[in-house]
Design a protein around this nucleic acid. Structure first.
Lengths: 195, 195
DNA sequence: AAGTACGCTTGATTTAAGTCAACTCATTGT
DNA sequence: ACAATGAGTTGACTTAAATCAAGCGTACTT
């Protein structure tokens, strides 16, 4: 299963620990491959986020809609990232978010109860969880700062230097929304920028 | 040590596990009480965040300054919260943040290396860390959403409903900065709001 | 191949929030 | 006690970004 190979490599690389054959068997037994076509939803607003998904291939966006129907992209995700609304996933409350495939998407997914088991029994998995949690803490700290203290143009520059591949991969209006901008404003920023 | 009693209670309550006498001894041996007077700094921009602090009494703000000398409050913290720049604390890089006491402050502090030991040897402590990490993930997810998709007034209302005690406790210009607003704008929002 | 829808750009206008400035009131310090 | 500092308010003005609107080009669809 080449799907799982990539997944195992990821866990071992992030955690700095090796997975035993038993570990791998356990993971394979309880992570299910799931394919979504472009535009399909991994999670819909109002549903409980029962699954967490690891992206093997493809990309997705996490977004909300306000009362005016205006969409707001909070996260753009690609290979080797996790998909979930963590609030809903941990607390089993209805989600306020939608997660939609932006390209054909292959994920490996599992449930909260299963994740608890992995954390308990697979050292590499729980080491990975700690590292991810650290990274997440760091990156949200940065993103919060950017959101509040940077101008639109600075946020765009920030994106270019941190995630240059996003520019190729996602339509400009998604990028705009991710940066908290209207598509028109991003278009103008780019116009000024390339001079 | 009444300081430690409150700390132990907190750990046990959050984690849902009990601390043994040995656990308590270990914690007491390696968390050091530290007092800061109002306006003193727990962490200064450019320094490495060597300590993580648990607030026993008092309050603090985490902020950055931009090139124009404009201060930007990212976090307001009170009793039973943790103080640190996690990026700097985990990676030992110079911090971009300042953490300043807003009231006389009593913290229990420890180092990264010691925290690793606690996580390894004190089940209640590592359970607590997991819960905190979950809560943090959830709350930053919410805060990101608020930052991008709420208006200034909605963010203020949100603060009122989530942290009503902040209004009593922190000066209005700190609240304004925390919400990403100028003090004037917050003043006007409040004026409209009370009608 | 034609038609439609959608993404991107550009221009004109509006709006929310920031900035600058003056004033009041409360707190602090000597 | 009195000056001084600083927080909060209010008003006038500016600015950054949103909104509204029109037009262009590309790519799905049938």
């Amino acid at each position: 299963m080449s799907n799982f190979e990539a997944f195992f490599d990821y866990i071992q690389e992030i955690s700095g620990k090796l997975l035993s054959e038993d570990d791998k068997q356990l993971l394979m037994a309880h992570f299910k491959a799931k394919k979504l076509r472009k535009r399909q939803y991994f999670l819909q607003e109002g549903d409980v986020c029962k699954y967490i998904g690891f992206i093997v291939k493809g990309s997705a966006r996490t977004f909300t809609t306000d009362e005016k129907g205006h969409e707001n992209v909070l996260k753009l995700s690609v290979e080797n990232w996790w998909l979930a609304d963590f609030e809903s996933f941990y607390l089993l409350t209805p989600s306020r978010f939608n997660i939609e495939a932006l390209e054909n998407l292959e994920v490996l997914q599992s449930t909260n109860a299963q994740i608890e088991e992995f954390l308990k029994h697979i050292p590499a998995f729980s080491a990975m969880a700690n590292v991810i949690s650290q990274n997440y803490t760091i990156s949200t700290q940065k993103r919060m700062q950017a959101a509040f203290s940077y101008t639109a143009e600075e946020r765009y520059q920030d994106l270019i230097s941190n995630y240059p591949h996003f520019l190729k991969r996602f339509p400009q209006n998604m990028i705009a929304s991710y940066l908290g901008l209207s598509p028109e404003t991003l278009s103008r920023i780019r116009k000024n920028f390339f001079k």
